[in-house]
Simulated assay, not measured.
Amino acid sequence: MEENPLCKCLMCIISTVGFIFFSLWITSLRAQPPNFYVQSIYFPSLNKTLIQNNDHPIFFTLKIVNPNSDKGVLYDAVSISIGVFVTDNATVSLANATLQGFYQGHGKKAVKSGTAKGHIGGGGGRGRGKVFLRVEVATAVKYKNLVWYSKRHHLWGGANVEMNVTSGTKVSPKGIRLGHVPARFGSGASAQVPGAGILIYLLLILCVCLS
């Protein structure tokens, strides 16, 4: 019995539409987490804080990079916590801050400045003549694919920042990425799906259309 051409055409259309949605679904799972950098940090009372416990603000600037050229990123509030190393392995909390949530376009960069409010009981100490702050960030994001958003993914990370005791600024002139050793930046996003699935699906479509 000869196959109905109309049925064959409909099968090809359904398969093509299915492939498009499957490709979009695969793409949505391949989101890369944003990169956070400490561009600047200024602790004007650093010397005094190392001697006694007081209430001191810390000024900072973060650069946030969206590495996804095909996705926007919608951020929840971004929490920043800053501590100081009192030994090689122990820190004491100094200050906290929260940045308002925002939307970031495809492949865009954002610069966010803020003030971390210090609290009594901070203090700190020098280790071998150097002072290191521990800067950590935590937030949650949704990735925008065309007109819809993915589920919420939690992000977190941190970095150790060497400070100049005299100037109260960080020693390195370059941005310090939050997430490098000793703690990589974490993400609740799904793992990247291999492209083999798309190839298999495409072969199935060709088989149906040519049969």
Rank of each mutant, 00 (worst) to 15 (best):
G179K: 07
I82Q: 06
L6Q: 10
T27A: 10
A31E: 11
I58S: 00
R128W: 07
H119I: 13
V147Y: 14
A110T: 12
I176R: 00
H119K: 14
T16N: 02
V161A: 00
G122W: 02
H119A: 15
S187E: 08
T166I: 06
G186N: 13
Q32F: 15
S93P: 13
V208Y: 04
I58P: 00
G127M: 12
N89M: 08
D88L: 11
G157Q: 05
N160C: 08
T27V: 10
V147E: 14
V17Y: 01
L74R: 09
L74D: 08
R128H: 11
F59Q: 04
G122M: 02
M1T: 12
G105N: 03
N35A: 09
L210K: 11
V38G: 00
V171Q: 06
K117P: 04
K117G: 07
N68G: 03
V171K: 13
V84D: 02
S40E: 07
K170A: 01
A116P: 01
V38E: 01
A191I: 11
L199F: 13
G105P: 01
T87W: 11
R184T: 12
Q32C: 13
N68A: 07
F59C: 05
C7R: 12
F36R: 00
I82P: 03
P67D: 07
V141N: 01
F132R: 06
V141D: 00
G179Q: 05
I14P: 03
V165Y: 15
I82R: 06
T27Y: 10
G18H: 04
G125E: 03
R177M: 15
M1I: 14
T49A: 02
G186Q: 11
N47Y: 07
L204Q: 08
A189Q: 09
L50K: 06
G107P: 04
T98W: 09
G107N: 03
I41E: 01
T169Q: 15
I13K: 05
G195L: 14
G197V: 10
